[in-house]
């Protein structure tokens, strides 16, 4: 395997829900690469399919949803074709996941130690109880939980939100995964704790060399954490670039809109670009470009065909027929 080959490659992924109005796609033809040892940020408003995308990778889409098409290649191996047993070994083994709600993502009736050792035992049947306990305490130490020996026997309700998210991370990293999927890991936490958790993730990435998919609707988090970025809108990726490139020259009007909602201290017209309206639900998508009803640059052609994700610069893709446009110039006018 070549070293610069991506760890995870998602091709044409489509995740659908069967409903009374027929199949609706929450994720609709997504292609993505996750480079080794780096962080891919996925950003987009609520409801644009970020969680469904990550759950599809884990094959944990809740019924009646299912992955209808595509490939999820982890080091060349298609996870969607694995047997249920083999997929279980991947979950928590090579690919681990943490979630948005640290308050409810841990089981309230088992101690945190038991929940961590359980994850370890699922992937290492031979280890003894004492060994697992030591390793779990080690894992708690790795996520900088103070006095891990006594925390081991605590129950989730005895810990703060930040501590619980640390436990979640410890549990996810218990078997040294190559890929960590973090679905809005800090959204439910207050700002200071949020910064601590992000720092921790970065440190752990440096230590272990794992890749991270970081899902968020906060471009500030992306700026801080991501090496590469994918912007999602209504089930599709509308722009892909390195983080530096994306912030320097955003191409898709939606990205511009998202950037506009970041407070800018150097300008006093910070909300100028904030996007009107909301993400359309998958069963009520507009014809043509899915963003055109909300797009300030939409022209007649935007209502007809869905634009494909195409290169606009080196390593920079955007799905907009108006890109690259001198959008900022237009706005200034």
């Amino acid at each position: 395997m070549r070293d610069n080959a991506p760890l995870l490659r998602i091709e044409g992924l489509r995740t659908v829900f069967r409903s009374s109005v027929g199949e609706i796609a929450a994720v609709d033809g997504v292609d993505l690469d996750v480079p080794r040892g780096r962080t891919l940020g996925i950003v987009g408003e609520s409801g644009c399919g970020k969680s469904m995308l990550s759950l599809s990778v884990m094959r944990l889409v809740p019924p009646p949803g299912r992955v209808a098409q595509g490939r999820v290649l982890l080091e060349g191996q298609d996870l969607l074709r694995l047997s249920a047993g083999a997929m279980r070994q991947v979950r928590g083994g090579k690919v681990a996941m943490i979630f948005q709600e640290p308050m409810t993502s841990l089981n309230p009736v088992h101690s945190v130690g038991a929940q961590i050792t359980e994850a370890m035992r699922a992937h290492d049947k031979s280890a003894s109880g004492a060994e697992l306990r030591d390793r779990a305490i080690e894992a708690l130490k790795r996520v900088r939980i103070p006095s891990p020996e006594s925390r081991f026997d605590d129950y989730p309700h005895q810990l703060s939100g930040g501590m619980r998210q640390r436990v979640m991370i410890a549990m996810a990293l218990a078997c040294r995964p190559q890929l960590l999927i973090a679905d809005e890991p800090t959204t439910a936490l207050d700002v200071t704790v949020q910064a601590q958790i992000l720092d921790l993730l970065r440190e752990l990435q440096d230590e272990t060399g794992m890749s991270i998919i970081l899902i968020t609707h906060d471009l500030g988090v992306i700026a801080e954490m991501a090496d590469e970025v994918a912007v999602m809108y209504a089930g599709k990726v509308v722009e892909r670039a390195t983080a530096a490139e994306l912030f320097a020259s955003p191409q898709h009007p939606y990205t511009l809109g998202l950037l506009g909602s970041i407070p800018r201290l150097d300008e006093d017209r910070e909300r100028l670009l904030a996007i009107e309206g909301a993400v359309p639900p998958p069963f009520a998508l507009p014809k043509g470009c899915r963003f055109h009803p909300r797009c300030p640059f939409a022209i007649e052609a935007c209502t007809r065909a869905q634009p494909a994700l195409e290169p606009v610069a080196d390593g920079h893709l955007a799905a907009c027929i108006r890109a690259p446009v001198e959008q900022s110039a237009e706005l200034a006018a």
């Binding site: 279980r88 979630f99 993502s105 979640m168």
Partner: peptide, 23 residues
Amino acid sequence: LGADHVRTARAKGLTERRVVTRH
């Protein structure tokens, strides 16, 4: 079974049987 922690249990790679009984 619809609770968040059950999803966590599955994401850990536990068997369905263990997910259903223990979580």
